[in-house]
Simulated assay, not measured.
Amino acid sequence: MLTEREKKCFESHEATLLDYGTIKVLDFKRPDSSYYQIRFLFEEDYCRLHISGDLGSLTAANCTNMTYEKFAEDYAGNPGYFREKVECHNRPFFVFDENMAKASLKEYLDESGVLAEVLRDGRMDWETDDDKLNDFFEDVFSDFTDAQGIGSTGYEALERYFSDPWEFASSLGKQETNILELYLYAFQMAKAQIDQRKNPFEKDGNRRSKASKGQRSQLPSGGSRTGP
């Protein structure tokens, strides 16, 4: 979920739409800065989308609905569905936090009944529980990275106690970067500006209608009103 701080980054952005038929280019940026600028280029005859700008780049495709109008309907509120259609990207969708991974692993060891075995295995008289757990974590997290999480050496350490550690270890410390949500939010904001320009009285229409009704209801019996 996006933070309010992330959303505010688009407050001063202005949207422009260039329509070349099967090619549509939606730009969303500040008039005086490239900060958080983003471009959505739709190849509608190939149902392909290219995103570029200050927030990285991405290419996505689908057989029928990767177009300007259908993107708003089918993808804007569904980042999980959109992720399935991504072909390439240069910003990670997930990162791995080592401290979070260690806390989650300790909890999993305890819940699965393995923690006691880890603390007891090969223990010396002078070693404490913290000593044993830290030794085990050194093996498990020796090749941990924020891009992939636990590495091959870590899985080998876990296999001493679990037959298939991949079932739980692959998600330890995993966090979404929200980059897809950021793209989709920017698209929604930009398209809303374009739609408002196409229908400038859409938002004011209801207010004017209500005001007009209120004024008519205050007219004396038999009275009339001229003008708009």
Rank of each mutant, 00 (worst) to 15 (best):
Asp125Arg: 12
Arg208Pro: 00
Ala190Pro: 04
Thr59Cys: 13
Lys174Tyr: 02
Arg207Lys: 13
Ser163Ala: 14
Lys106Asn: 13
Leu219Glu: 13
Thr177Asp: 01
Phe82Met: 07
Gly154Asp: 10
Ser34Ala: 06
Pro220Ser: 09
Lys8Glu: 07
Gly77Gln: 11
Arg39Gln: 13
Leu41Glu: 12
Phe162Lys: 06
Gly56His: 10
Leu18Ala: 14
Asp204Pro: 00
Ser33Arg: 04
Ile23Arg: 12
Ala116Gly: 08
Glu43Met: 14
Gln37Phe: 05
Phe201Gly: 00
Glu43Lys: 05
Asp143Ile: 01
Ala116Phe: 12
Phe10Met: 01
Glu167Val: 09
Ser224Asp: 09
Lys210Thr: 02
Val86Glu: 03
Phe137Tyr: 12
Leu2Lys: 01
Gly173Asp: 08
Phe42Leu: 06
Ala190Leu: 12
Phe136Ser: 01
Phe141Pro: 07
Asn65Cys: 08
Leu180Met: 10
His89Cys: 13
Glu43Tyr: 15
Phe40Pro: 02
Met189Lys: 15
Gly56Leu: 06
Val86Ala: 06
Arg225Asp: 03
Trp126Val: 10
Ser224Asn: 13
Lys8Tyr: 07
Leu180Trp: 10
Leu184Ser: 14
Asp19Phe: 00
Asp97Ile: 04
Leu133Gly: 11
Glu44Cys: 09
Arg225Tyr: 00
Glu176Gly: 14
Val25Cys: 04
Lys213Leu: 11
Asp164Tyr: 06
Arg208Leu: 11
Phe201Asp: 08
Ser224Ile: 15
Phe144Cys: 06
Met189His: 03
Thr22Ile: 01
Ser171Leu: 05
Glu117Pro: 04
Ala103His: 04
Gln37His: 14
Glu14Leu: 07
Glu44Pro: 08
Val25Ala: 05
Leu49Arg: 01
Val140Trp: 06
Tyr68Trp: 07
Arg123Cys: 05
Asp143Pro: 09
Glu14Asp: 04
Leu41Ile: 05
Asn99Met: 09
